[in-house]
Nucleic acid binder design. Structure first.
Lengths: 347, 347
DNA sequence: GTGAAAGCGCTAACAA
DNA sequence: TTGTTAGCGCTTTCAC
């Protein structure tokens, strides 16, 4: 591992000159010729700065702490983390992820992260919830991911729940469905509210309009399956917007028992896409994929821009199907990732 | 953030004495009384060592690098990482995870990790594959997780594939099933080989014996579903061992179309448990859960023991249902995690 | 037994 | 325009 000292000796200048040049602070301070020679030997020797030593001086580590619940239990976390990682690595940062699943250790994890000198934090709940960020984070830059700050004081990156359901429902309408059901979640969550509103808005613009009796909010397992079954009996829907994979499965199960084929007899649009569904239900199922990767990527960009206190170049951000949101919005800012659509049309 | 200097001043000793005491190198070098006072003020001030400064001297960072594919696409990764994190945090380490999904960036990620001074690496493929560890890792401690070293030179932690299928099949036999099918994977992988062997061994100990025509290896989507459907037609199995969730779903779909109910008309044991299945199929489905958490935990213990060059205390490891494997085995060592069983009996 | 001092690799005042 | 110098917090040798 080559050091600045070696470069300095080899070039015949002092370490500080090398430092200036290599940190791009040489404008008008170091002779262009010397600067060039320094840069040359640096690349010759394959110089890479030692982040630890740098951190010791600057107390900036270029390490980001990612705090989340449920990393272990959802397949989504990975996408978010991957996106955050990509963005981080683009800007020369690394991620340390800790998850607090089922443990009361959040505070000690945060303390550990602080000791390692992270420059800022992601605070993530998987699947858009209201979150209360621990006070121990209050003197650090923080961005919420797939979550909304209870105090509405911190920037967050979230999916555009309304649009997810609005677009998906519109798609079913265009496909000619006449009795479009909403299979949702009876738990109280942001996603449920936003999506139900989007579904409703899409239908209210049409002849069929919004019909409460086509809304079926369920939890899980047997009771959920029975509720969907009852909906089939009473309203015989020909189109389904499903809150998530599990809800889509109830529809599939009921359809199979009735000899109905998805994509022919009924149309189903589901949100998200567990791997298992990609292997089984596709391509009959139309899926609306949440842009987890983009959420992570955007959040990292936002966090880094806060840390470095300069606007980031939004042109480099990966795009979803939606227009780019305003980026340098003041804090608190909610940045809505829009949806990604995948799969064939329902019918 | 209190420093050693502050402790030294407050106690009226020098920094070096503080260092000696706090690093437990004071035996016979520092007066017990002084040592006690140092320790006292340290706790009074809530002293936590600055890992960065320490690293600069020792070139040990107590950071572990976790390299994996597919973090984004499987829900399993989370469990492994969580386990590794827990173990790491128990021993005062942190994890930096990088994933190399669909990117040619592996080498640059490794280089970045090295620059951050990681003490060792996890190299993980999700779902037990033969892996070739990059040569750039060869001068570091490395442990493979859910993967087998192609050169058989590195320690690895893997599930006990044979036992997974042996136990699951035995369970179906005990439940009285007489035509037990194996719904497997037609891709060539360690897990497939091991599990098929386990299934076969369990059946060969019984009257029904092993019957090739009950083995159905499939890939995905329509073709897979049709193959399972054909198996239903030709052999009418009453018990199923399913390689994974997707395979279990094919069985469910076929059963639903025939009006059969799982847990009553047929018995199904599936490996793994995506969250979506826990919400839908349980408790009818018997699941054999791979011990991802334990794999991560054990791997971290192994890696740390290599780094610190001392045996770890295996008594603290989380247990699965299997007996503890020999731990201080010389390298190369394969440490087999056994399975965890969950869910109700099939019938 | 204890402390002074050097130095890990780098940055940033300040001098020259 | 460049170099000297003084640390960042910690470990470690070597005098005392």
């Amino acid at each position: 591992m080559t050091t600045m000292k070696e470069i300095a000796e080899k070039t015949g200048v002092s370490v500080s000159t090398v430092s200036l040049v290599l940190n791009k602070r040489d404008a008008g301070r170091v002779k262009p010729d010397i600067a060039r020679r320094v840069r040359q030997t640096a690349t010759d020797l394959g110089y890479k700065p030692n982040p630890l030593a740098r951190s010791l001086r600057t107390s900036k580590t270029r390490i980001l702490g990612f705090i989340s619940e449920e990393v272990a239990t959802t397949p989504y976390a990975g996408g978010i983390i991957l996106g955050a990682q990509d963005a981080a690595s683009t800007y020369g940062y690394m991620l340390i992820t800790v998850s607090t699943d089922g443990r009361a250790s959040e505070e000690s994890e945060i303390a550990a992260l602080k000791r390692y000198g992270v420059d800022g934090f992601f605070y993530s709940k998987m699947s858009n919830r209201i979150a209360t960020v621990p006070k121990s984070l209050s003197d650090y830059p923080v961005v919420l991911v797939d979550a909304t700050d209870a105090n509405n004081a911190l920037p967050s990156v979230e999916p555009d729940e309304f649009r997810i359901a609005f677009d998906a429902t519109s798609r079913l309408i265009e496909a000619g469905c006449e009795r479009i059901a909403y299979i949702g979640c009876s738990e109280n969550m942001i996603a449920q509210d936003g999506r139900l509103a989007g579904y409703r808005a899409a239908l209210e613009g049409t002849d069929q309009g919004f019909d409460e009796s086509l809304v079926c909010n369920v939890l899980n397992n047997g009771p959920a399956l029975r509720a969907v079954n009852a909906l089939f009996d009473t309203r015989n829907p020909d189109g389904f917007f499903c809150f998530n994979d599990a809800r889509a499965w109830y529809v599939y199960e009921c359809a199979a028992r009735r000899g109905l084929t998805v994509g022919r007899d009924i149309s189903v649009v589901g949100v998200d896409n567990h791997r298992v569904f990609a292997e089984t239900l596709e391509p009959q199922l139309t899926t609306v994929e949440l842009p987890h990767y983009e959420m992570g990527y955007w959040a990292a960009c936002k966090l880094i821009s806060m840390i470095e206190d300069k606007p980031v170049d939004t042109a480099k951000w990966p795009r979803t199907t939606s227009p780019m949101p305003p980026l340098d919005a003041p804090i608190p800012a909610k940045i809505h990732c829009a949806l990604i659509e995948k799969g064939s049309v329902a019918r």
